[in-house]
Design a protein around this nucleic acid. Structure first.
Lengths: 332, 332
DNA sequence: GACTGCGATTTGAACGTTCAAACCCGCGGG
DNA sequence: CCCGCGGGTTTGAACGTTCAAATCGCAGTC
């Protein structure tokens, strides 16, 4: 494997000049640059990243802890990872994966990776209510950026990017309203996670703004499963309160809604409009296709990387989800 | 951040002795080791990975290309990544993610990562028929191991770990047989991918072995979607050929089968037994739960890492999938 | 013609670690 | 008493790069 020294010898310049050819080409005279580049090309030289990192103490690697919550499905994680990788690569960086125990027990792992100079910083996701990681990392002065706000805390510890769930729900409600529905229900989760509350509130205010009813139309499902989505829908149907639209907190719940509606002879779309969340792979694979609020993964990843690799000002970006319209919300 | 030198000064030994305390503790006298360890502890020293890698030219990082095939859903990718990470970490290594164009166009990316000493080797997955990557990497002498055999090639270019789809199907067939079914259909894919053929053949031979019919019971769906799974099942039902069990090539197809059966008033499980593939998150979220052939991700990851970091003998591991039994195959 | 200024290039050191070889010291054997 | 041996420790160099400072060459200025 060729080194700077060998390239330098071949091009008959000093080592530093070759280094400059790569990192600060404007410093070279045009003809020298040309000559050096030819030698680089010829010897198929690639800079050794370890030597570089040793000298500059920047590894151009970003740590990401791959989540392992067996009870929650990560249907869009591959989208997120791909987007994150791509965004990192656009700045010459890469993603380093690792595992860590949840919560504060995982912090030594983060610390260790940073202390050993294996990563420059971290991207956090799967943010929980009162997530301890953010405060800890801030305390230790370890660079990070969070996908997702830390809920239940007055000030945000560190920079973040998130998707505006409230506005997302509002978009869904207005879309259903626009296709003629006037009684729009909400299928949510039990435990008041910040995310769930956010989305719920958006539904409520949007309904109020449009002057359509909400009382008795919000159902809390016991878990994030198709089964529970179906059961929640059944409860809604059995309650006797009429409704012609459903905004569900997740695609999985929405799938349950579709199933229950179909089972009761109601055509999703034509009968009751259904909108889910996250535009998971399920959404387009089911029939009728599920209208869903897509997280703009590419934007999210782009912002995360920009913030993390930028001048580390406290940055906060709230992005809007995009409504992907499919059959489940076809005009009734 | 403390360095070897500082620890050495603090413990009043040479730098090399501290290095030995970490990498070859048996070389130190017990009391020196004790003393050095105390200093390490006290100064909270962590070896700088870049300096180490520079010297030893081994980075302890394994490259993995995060796939981006929009038309195929990666429902178990998070499981795989988690297992792979965990297995790598057990040997002190980590996973570096990157993106690359599919096929041979992506090879420069692999080459570059290796030439810059950013990774020691690669784990390949999403192996395609006649996948060019394996041969290329072998040619370039870049260490790798493949999750998935390269189909349509007489000899395997390099070490691999795979799951025995044929035996998997056979397990499924025997399970359905064991619960009383005697006419077991197969829901497959169109394009004869190696994987599809493998699983199909297992179904056929198992049926023959048990003396149950196969003619007219294999259906090829046009895509890997719920919709197509339902349509395939419908075709089967409409063909007039009786059947009481279905082995589907994927959970998604199986879900389609469940839907169509339910729609026609047939109870999955009690009526027709259904088995899917891969035990994706969908399987346990649907109702009745979907019996599915789980890929033993932890074993797979373990083997991949062992082979890659081992003495690089040509190694081939064919693992068995595990049948996860749920309601969809309850005795009829 | 010496002096200044500036762009292009080189020199020497440093980043933090490990490898290979040298060194030191106490001990048993001739 | 000297030699050889071997475990424990130190020394010097090297890995491949970049930084900071020094040097060189040349044009413009007084």
């Amino acid at each position: 494997m060729a080194t700077l020294k060998q390239v330098a010898a071949h091009a008959e310049v000093s080592v530093q000049t070759v280094s400059n050819a790569l990192n600060a080409p404007h410093r070279l005279r045009a003809d020298t640059l040309e000559r050096v580049n030819r030698s680089i090309e010829l010897l198929n030289y690639r800079p050794n990243r370890n030597a570089r990192s040793l000298r500059t103490s920047a590894v151009e690697l970003i740590g990401y802890c791959v989540p392992n919550w067996p009870n929650q499905t990560h249907l869009v994680m591959d989208q997120f990872l791909h987007a994150l990788c791509a965004a990192a690569e656009r700045t010459g960086r890469h993603i380093l994966l690792f595992t860590a125990p949840p919560g504060v027990d995982g912090m030594p792992t983060y610390d260790d990776l940073h202390a050993r100079r294996m990563v420059d910083g971290f991207v956090l996701s799967q943010t929980e209510t009162h997530d301890p990681r953010h405060g800890w990392l801030k305390e230790e002065d370890i660079p990070f950026v969070s996908f997702g706000r830390v809920w239940g805390q007055s000030t945000q510890p560190g920079p973040w990017v998130d998707v505006d769930g409230a506005t997302g729900s509002a978009i869904a409600v207005r879309h259903l309203y626009g296709t003629g529905r006037r009684r729009i229900a909400f299928l949510g989760w039990p435990k008041s996670s910040g995310l769930a509350e956010d989305r719920l509130s958006g539904w409520r205010t949007a309904c109020k703004d449009l002057g359509v009813p909400t009382t008795g139309l919000a159902v809390r499902c016991r878990a994030d499963s198709i089964e529970e989505g179906a059961r929640g829908t059944a409860r809604l149907l059995d309650s006797g309160r009429a409704f012609d639209g459903i905004v569900a907190l997740s695609d999985v719940l929405a799938l349950g809604a579709l199933r229950e509606l179909t089972a009761r002879g109601i055509t999703p779309g034509a009968g009751v409009g259904v909108v889910g969340y996250d535009d998971s792979p399920l959404a387009e694979v089911v029939s009728p296709g599920l209208t869903s609020l897509r997280q703009p993964m590419d934007r999210i990843a782009e912002e995360l990387i920009t913030i993390l690799t930028g001048d580390q000002q406290p940055a906060e970006r709230l992005l809007l989800p995009e409504l992907v319209i499919r059959g489940s919300s076809a005009p009734g």
